[in-house]
Design a protein around this nucleic acid. Structure first.
Lengths: 339, 339
DNA sequence: CTGTTAGCGCGTTCAA
DNA sequence: TTGAACGCGCTAACAG
């Protein structure tokens, strides 16, 4: 069997004690002389020494690893959040390890949480994953700081960083209204037992009320933010729908809506306008480009790391900015139809 | 400070020795009685015990973790490979931890490799990451099995699993030829100091030769598989290009080409045909849908795990299947122009 | 089937 | 500035 070189090997070669090697390698300034340091470092290099993380973590009881738990949903914005996390973690010398949990798969979720917890990582960031009560308990009992990203929580004690989801729904609706739309639908969002979706729907309804627009249950189409749920919604609305504007739960859902509209012989944005929620690069590569309510994903990531690093964990709710990015999928309506 | 409960605590509560607790919790069948097992499990549950992975790994010198190192390139097929890895790893009770290495960022790459190696994971899978010599040495010296995925290697001793990249280039070209195209370009691939790209280009040239087609240096456009490199290639070709068919290095590059063609007033596929290399879901959500040479990403993932688990590491080169998926971005040419 | 003992590799006292 | 000794939590060998 292969045995990795340990500090003892280095100690022997350098003619010092293991303790000294430990000190040098950990850069405990002031606890060793420069000549011994040199001997130790040379020996370490020659032997190809690599520190055993398990041993270190066992004795220090702390880790330089930051776990990110991602669900496997076919969302494409996770990358942006992860980019933000990496960017913030790198200068702090934190290693980011990413763990996938299945969608709504409690067992995989549990395993992901467990691997993080059992390694006593310094913190856990959960990317748009909804945990059940058992797994939440698991998380809480571990005494490791954690924070939800890109998801809203009702429980005030749970820390999360995300967009103001109510405002997202409101803003998308308001934008369409301002562009002259009066018959506005919302599709592809999950508002059943999922706070994020509920809030967006609520914002949508609030805008409807404020602008005295008709609320039509047929125009609210539940889904899971997927391409397919967009397609399905649009085919349910049908070719002869009275809708002129649709809010899509995600970029992917928006594309599903758009393609299905085209299949039905409808033109975007001439016959039907679409506002996507998210605003990732997908909005820019489809034709026409999608107007979106864009979220600050990258920032969610950096703020997440900041939060974990911050001693003061009193703030549990952090809101990142959103804004409408106008592209090509919304037509401005004028004339008697709309005014 | 918070102290986690250990097997000693359980031992005390259950009135047995720590060794017995260890056996029960590790399910060493046949080494404990059912009554003691029950006592132990109850105590463990009551105390909210969680195994300390560092301690276990320290003594057993092995890990149930499988590290996947991903580069940060904006490729979108990594998810499929990772899905395959997860699927193969789950039933084997392996935890998959994903580490991001920057693009061509040797330092981040080193850190990613180090975190994997220092934890003595059971294996390392590298997803389309090209390592420099130093990092390759690091990898080799660790005595941990590793395998490159979705990338070709020339060094026969390095294990890798990917498509036959030469064949990818050949097949795409041949397909266009069979559809009546005679002026065929290739764009968005990196064939400078990158084996994968070199091979694809080689396959392209081989097909050209075989079918006695003209090879025009202007039709070969280097790039980095990105959307932008597709855009750039197309605008360099220009509106009046003699090309009728273009092979794109990736789905994203294909979309870049398509959108730029449209900007130039060219219609896809009527004026210009495109074959994308990869065949991810992006091909199906754009309009027109992209015909592609599709790779078996999911399978690369499952095979990668199999390879790590396999005792016999003699086979270093594994090829996964490719095939042309016909969609809507290639027009069949007939008439004197082409025949 | 179970307890005792030893030690994985490292960091950290305490003495010197 | 350095070394000896101890222990982190756990598993493995051995004895019973």
């Amino acid at each position: 069997m292969f045995l990795a070189t340990t500090i003892k090997d280095i100690a022997k070669m350098a003619g010092v004690s293991a303790a000294t090697v430990s000190r040098v390698l950990a850069n405990k300034e002031g606890f060793f002389g420069s000549s011994t340091a040199k001997k130790v470092r040379e020996a370490a290099a020659k032997l190809g020494y690599r520190k055993n993380t398990s041993a270190t973590e066992l004795v220090t009881r702390k880790s330089h690893d930051l776990a990110v738990i991602v669900n496997a949903t076919k969302t494409n914005f996770s990358n942006h959040i992860i980019d933000g996390i990496q960017a913030a973690a790198f200068p702090k010398d934190l290693n980011v390890i990413i763990l996938y949990a299945g969608d709504f798969d409690a067992e995989r979720q549990r395993r992901a949480i467990n691997t993080a917890v059992n390694r006593s990582v310094m913190g856990i960031l959960l990317l748009s994953v909804e945990v059940n009560d058992d797994n939440l308990d698991l998380l809480k009992s571990a005494q490791i700081p954690f924070c939800f990203l890109s998801i809203s929580e009702t429980d005030e004690s749970l820390p999360f960083i995300t967009s103001d989801d109510e405002e997202v729904g409101y803003l998308a609706t308001k934008y369409l209204y301002q562009q002259g739309h009066r018959n506005i639908g919302i599709a592809g969002i999950n508002y059943k037992n999922a706070i994020t979706g509920e809030l967006r729907l609520h914002g949508y309804k609030r805008a409807l009320k404020e602008f005295k627009l008709q609320e039509n249950p047929d125009w609210i189409s539940a889904g899971d933010y997927s391409y397919e749920s967009g397609e399905l919604a649009m085919s349910t609305y049908g070719r002869n729908t009275k809708l002129t504007g649709i809010i899509a739960g995600s970029d992917m859902a928006a594309i599903g809506i758009m393609n299905q509209a085209r299949s039905l012989g409808l033109s975007v944005p001439d016959d039907i306008s679409i506002v996507a929620i998210d605003g990732t690069e997908l909005c820019e590569i489809v034709q026409p480009q999608l107007t979106s309510v864009s979220q600050s994903f990258y920032e969610m990531g950096t703020l997440g790391v900041d939060w974990l690093l911050n001693k003061d964990k009193k703030v549990t709710k952090t809101i990142t900015p959103i804004k409408v990015i106008e592209r090509q999928s919304v037509k401005r309506l004028t004339g008697k139809n709309s005014f």
